[in-house]
Amino acid sequence: MNTISTLFLALAMSADAFAAAIGKGAMLQRPRLLEALRTGLIFGVIEAITPLVGWSLGRFAADYVTAWDHWIAFSILSILGLRMIWLGLRPDEEAVEKPQSHSFILLAATALGTSIDAMSVGASLAFLDVDIIPVAFAIGLVTCLMVSIGVMLGRMLGAASKHTVEIIGGLILVAIGSLILYKHLSGAG
């Protein structure tokens, strides 16, 4: 793969993580750059690892990985999204401040859900005899940058109602999962 193809692939792989990061940033109490970089690093590392896993599996079991990747992504993102929508629809029991940061587990689960498609890309690259290391590195680096920017952009949206932000963030995650599923089932992806 040439540099331009790798860059476009990395941008495409980071788009859904960027959208999720905007929601994550909006749900925080004025996140600082350090929190945005932490979130970007978590997403970037996971997004870099999944094509490596997909590439490895592609060498051994490509049919199995590509047969289920869209269902896994849809399930993870839908569960996280529906949870966010449910939290957004619940009435406030008492005024609760927005957290300063998200837990590692929540960020990792969201990152995994948005990076499942990178696993199938890695599996397909195994058949093209592509050197996966620079591709995975580029995907991870671009995702780290895009997610960090997304969190800070979400900070600007943070003035919106907590409920509205959670519902919109949840809808975005469900939409991303549904789009991944639709693309695979319709043959468009």
Results as ranks from 00 to 15, higher is better:
Val45Pro: 01
Ala19Thr: 06
Ser56Asp: 10
Gly158Pro: 02
Ala95Asp: 15
Arg32Gln: 04
Ile42Gly: 06
Glu166Asn: 07
Ile168Val: 15
Ala159Asp: 15
Ala108Ile: 11
Leu153Cys: 08
Ala175Tyr: 06
Leu9Ser: 11
Ala136Thr: 09
Ile167Lys: 10
Phe18Gly: 02
Pro31Ile: 01
Gly25Asn: 05
Leu28Lys: 04
Gln100Lys: 15
Gln29Gly: 01
Ser124Ile: 11
Arg30Met: 10
Leu128Asp: 13
Leu125Glu: 13
Ala10Arg: 05
Ala95Ile: 14
Glu166Trp: 05
Gly150His: 07
Gly23Cys: 00
Thr110Leu: 08
Asp129Met: 09
Thr66Ile: 13
Leu28Arg: 02
Ser124Trp: 11
Pro91Asn: 09
Leu9Ile: 14
Arg38Gln: 12
Ile116His: 10
Ser5Cys: 01
Leu52Thr: 04
Tyr182His: 11
Cys144Arg: 03
Gly189Asn: 12
Ala48Leu: 08
Gly169Arg: 10
Gly54Pro: 00
Leu157Cys: 12
Asp16Gln: 00
Ser115Asp: 12
Ala19Gly: 05
Phe43Gly: 05
Thr66Pro: 03
Ile167Met: 11
Thr3His: 11
Ile105Tyr: 13
Gln29Tyr: 08
Leu89Thr: 11
Leu125Met: 12
Ile168Phe: 02
His70Ser: 08
Ile176Glu: 02
Met119Asn: 03
Ala126Cys: 06
Met152Leu: 15
Glu94Pro: 00
Ala123Tyr: 07
Ala19Glu: 07
Gly122Ile: 06
Val53Pro: 00
Leu82Ile: 10
Pro99Val: 00
Met119Trp: 10
Leu145Cys: 12
Gly189His: 13
Gly25Gln: 04
Pro91Ala: 13
Ala26Leu: 02
Ile168Met: 12
Ala36Asp: 01
Ala136Asn: 08
Leu82Cys: 11
Thr3Arg: 10
Phe137Gln: 09
Lys183Val: 00
Gly23Phe: 02
Leu80Met: 15
Gly58Trp: 01
Pro134Asn: 05
Gly154Tyr: 00
Tyr182Trp: 13
Val165Phe: 01
Ala118Ile: 02
Phe43Met: 01
Pro134Cys: 07
Val165Arg: 01
Ala188Asp: 15
Ile167Phe: 00
Val174Lys: 01
Leu107Ser: 03
Asn2Thr: 05
Ile46His: 06
Arg32Phe: 00
Arg155Trp: 01
Leu41Cys: 06
Ser161Phe: 05
Leu179Gly: 07
Asn2Val: 06
Arg83Asn: 13
Ile49Gly: 08
Gly81His: 04
Ile116Asp: 08
Ala73Asn: 03
Val142Trp: 04
Leu128Ile: 00
Phe60Ala: 15
Phe127Glu: 15
Ile172Ser: 05
Gly122Ala: 09
Leu9Cys: 11
Ala159Val: 12
Ile133Phe: 15
Tyr182Ile: 08
Gly40Arg: 09
Asp63Gln: 10
Ile4Lys: 08
Val121Cys: 13
Leu89Cys: 09
Met84His: 08
Glu35Cys: 05
Arg32Leu: 07
Met146Val: 02
Gly23His: 03
Gly40Lys: 03
Glu97Gly: 02
Ser161Ile: 05
Val174Arg: 07
Met27Cys: 14
Leu89Ala: 13
Leu7Asn: 03
Ile105His: 14
Ala126Thr: 10
Ala61Leu: 01
Leu9Lys: 13
Asp117Ala: 06
Ile4Val: 11
Phe18Met: 07
His102Pro: 00
Leu181Ala: 11
Gln29Val: 03
Ile42Trp: 07
Gly150Val: 04
